[in-house]
Design a protein around this nucleic acid. Sequence first.
DNA 1: TGCTTGACAGAAG
DNA 2: CCTTCTGCCAAGC
Length: 112
Amino acid sequence: MSKKNTTFHKDSLLFAQEVYEIVAQIPAGKVFTYGMIARLVGCPQNSRLVGTVLKNTPQDLHLPTWRVVNSQGRTVPAWAEQQELLEAEGVGFKNNGHVEIEKFLWKPFEEF
DNA sequence: TGCTTGACAGAAG
DNA sequence: CCTTCTGCCAAGC
């Protein structure tokens, strides 16, 4: 039962499920970041793992993974459709190809 | 078992 | 603004 946890971390399966739970709640027309997700699940230093999880997200879960971008508002490399999907929801982009994250970032604790 | 990779974040140049 | 580097840590090979 007792694993040699040098640091506090969750089982990878649970970690993945928590990530899915959050992504499923991102409203259309908004974006969220890997870092924010990592913090919400209690692992602020596992932002890279969030990306790994989303990359392997089963299609049958029907999750809006395209609403997740990095902290700079940068979209996923080698996935041109992502920008089109977001623009179709009304998300604005800058000339440099980044999401106007300051305007479209989802704020879970400021919902109304 | 050990080194490399990666849908990241943040800082630096 | 863009590129590069470092820190972080699980997954791959």
